[in-house]
Measured scan of single mutants.
Amino acid sequence: MPEGSASLQLAVGDRVVYPNQGVCRVSAIDVKEVAGQKLTFVTMRREEDGAVVMVPEGKVLAIGVRKVASAE
């Protein structure tokens, strides 16, 4: 991610809310080559049905992904 860009610090195992998809758990953060460029992807699995969603790390905030609020 370019320096100075806002990002959401995620780790494998974090629970997040993905708008219009529901609650997901981060299952992987991997670098993949797409069209000759190396990009970091956040892979999330929906808790409702296990569907897998992959989002480029740089788009996580723009999409509206946020961490699940704690009970505290």
Results as ranks from 00 to 15, higher is better:
52 V>F: 11
14 D>I: 03
66 R>T: 14
16 V>Y: 04
9 Q>K: 13
54 M>A: 05
64 G>Q: 07
19 P>D: 07
50 G>T: 02
18 Y>Q: 02
56 P>Y: 08
17 V>C: 00
7 S>M: 11
19 P>C: 00
46 R>W: 03
38 K>D: 04
1 M>E: 12
47 E>M: 06
42 V>P: 00
14 D>E: 03
68 V>C: 08
31 V>P: 02
27 S>P: 00
25 R>A: 05
37 Q>N: 08
1 M>L: 12
72 E>Y: 07
43 T>Q: 05
50 G>K: 02
38 K>G: 03
33 E>Q: 07
32 K>G: 04
12 V>R: 01
20 N>F: 08
32 K>F: 15
24 C>T: 01
19 P>I: 04
34 V>P: 01
11 A>H: 11
60 V>T: 04
22 G>C: 03
70 S>W: 10
35 A>F: 09
57 E>R: 06
31 V>I: 12
11 A>G: 05
51 A>Y: 11
32 K>C: 04
28 A>N: 08
4 G>D: 10
55 V>Q: 04
69 A>E: 13
27 S>R: 04
49 D>F: 02
26 V>G: 00
6 A>P: 13
44 M>F: 15
56 P>F: 09
14 D>A: 03
58 G>T: 14
60 V>P: 02
65 V>R: 04
47 E>K: 01
64 G>S: 07
5 S>G: 13
55 V>H: 04
19 P>G: 12
44 M>I: 06
7 S>A: 12
22 G>R: 03
46 R>K: 05
10 L>T: 01
22 G>F: 03
22 G>Q: 05
38 K>F: 12
48 E>G: 08
3 E>L: 11
49 D>P: 01
65 V>C: 06
22 G>M: 05
42 V>S: 00
46 R>G: 04
21 Q>R: 09
46 R>A: 05
12 V>C: 00
47 E>C: 03
57 E>M: 15
17 V>Y: 15
72 E>Q: 10
1 M>Y: 13
36 G>K: 02
4 G>Y: 09
26 V>A: 00
12 V>D: 01
43 T>C: 02
14 D>P: 00
51 A>V: 11
41 F>P: 00
12 V>F: 01
3 E>A: 13
53 V>H: 05
35 A>R: 09
46 R>I: 03
10 L>Y: 04
68 V>W: 04
65 V>P: 03
66 R>L: 13
17 V>G: 02
4 G>E: 12
72 E>W: 07
21 Q>V: 15
56 P>N: 07
19 P>L: 08
41 F>L: 09
